[in-house]
Amino acid sequence: MKATSYWSRNFILILIGNALLFMVYNMQVPVLPLFGKQLGLTPAQIGIFVGAIMFAALVTRLFVPWFSGKFSKKVLLVVGILLYLLASVGYPLLGSFGLLVLLRLFNGLGHGITTTYFATSAADELPANKIGEGMGYFGIGTMMTASLAPLLALAIVQRVSFAAFFVTCIGILFLAMLAILGTTRSPRSAAKPTTKAPVFDRQFMPQCSLVFILGVLMSGVMTFTPIYAQAQHLTAISWFFFVAAIAGVVIRPIVGRSFDQRGPRLVLLISTVLLTVGLVMIAVISSNWLLITAGIFYGVADGAIYPTLQAWVFKVTTLENRDTATGMFLNSYDLGMGLGAVVLGGLVELLQYQGMFWVLSIVGLCYIGLAMGCSRRVA
């Protein structure tokens, strides 16, 4: 592979495998609550059933240094996809709450493993001077499937059945498995983590702090914008998420090249400003066009900030500690998403939806300053 090229067979297969796995993840997000409701689970049980995946993923990533020292990334990805398959096969067969939660925990183990090692495997294929651009393209597959998956999943459930939905998930996971089995070992992936690689490293606190807050902000938008828009008698919420996904896909290669040439500071300045503007627009939405425009701002910001922070982590870590850094980074984001939904739900009860989005706007304004402070040393 040439020093300036990263479009190797391995990179393409890893990108495809990751996109297919996230296709299944994003298909399950809107369907599993409906599946639980059909089985007669209470709202509290549905919340535990659906949310167990994040808890298991968080715990799994704490063992990343040990996994990396014992097994190759390819083996770990195969195991992670197999755990996803086990859960997808079991969901329609097991109807009790306890067994469903157990399956969701297995699903979470697979999710924690695959999200860590897909990202690091992709980074292993990239030359140092192209890591921002390469990870930008890597994330495009995830964003495209995130926009298409809910539409496909709900269409299958509404027009066919839950059984057909789970069969579709299983088929997609088999394709992801084939993609990974088709990869060969990269020289960079042979690097082993240090014997006592920490599960927490202060070196990555700037990036992890920023991605944690991003997770809080994103959880507010994703969880409460649909309900808030409905309360405002707006009908374009599907278009909000669609244009956000398209904007994120378009912007990723651009910000990736900017990161490679200038570092994270400029990208973070522009994208955090756009994110704050988008949050303010959501807080004051009064028409479908304003909602759609807010979706563009939100999509550009999300499509720029996350991959920039991820590429920044890869840039400053060593090959030996890349898996540990990725686990810490992903856990920070998931923790922000999980805690954000809980805390912001409480704010809604106190301040109503518009008040909560004004709080998010203020947090976004502070986020600009924090991003500039954290990236000062690499300007």
Rank of each mutant, 00 (worst) to 15 (best):
T183A: 09
A236P: 03
G369T: 02
G69V: 01
I296R: 04
F22R: 10
S88C: 15
D323G: 15
I12S: 14
T184W: 02
E133T: 04
S5H: 13
N129A: 13
S8G: 11
W66F: 13
L105K: 06
V79H: 04
T318E: 08
I362N: 01
Y367R: 08
Q158G: 12
L15G: 00
M356Q: 04
L82D: 04
V342K: 01
S147E: 01
A164G: 15
F35L: 10
L13C: 09
R262W: 02
T114A: 14
G263F: 00
R61C: 06
G369H: 03
V316I: 15
L58V: 13
E133A: 07
V216R: 08
A379Q: 07
C208Y: 00
M23C: 14
Q28T: 14
L39H: 07
A304I: 01
I254F: 13
I46A: 08
G220S: 04
V273A: 05
L105D: 00
W7H: 10
S287P: 00
K2I: 08
P307R: 14
A87I: 02
A244Q: 02
I48P: 06
I16C: 14
D323W: 01
A146S: 15
A304S: 15
P65K: 13
S88Y: 05
R61P: 04
I46Q: 11
V273T: 06
L105W: 00
P33R: 12
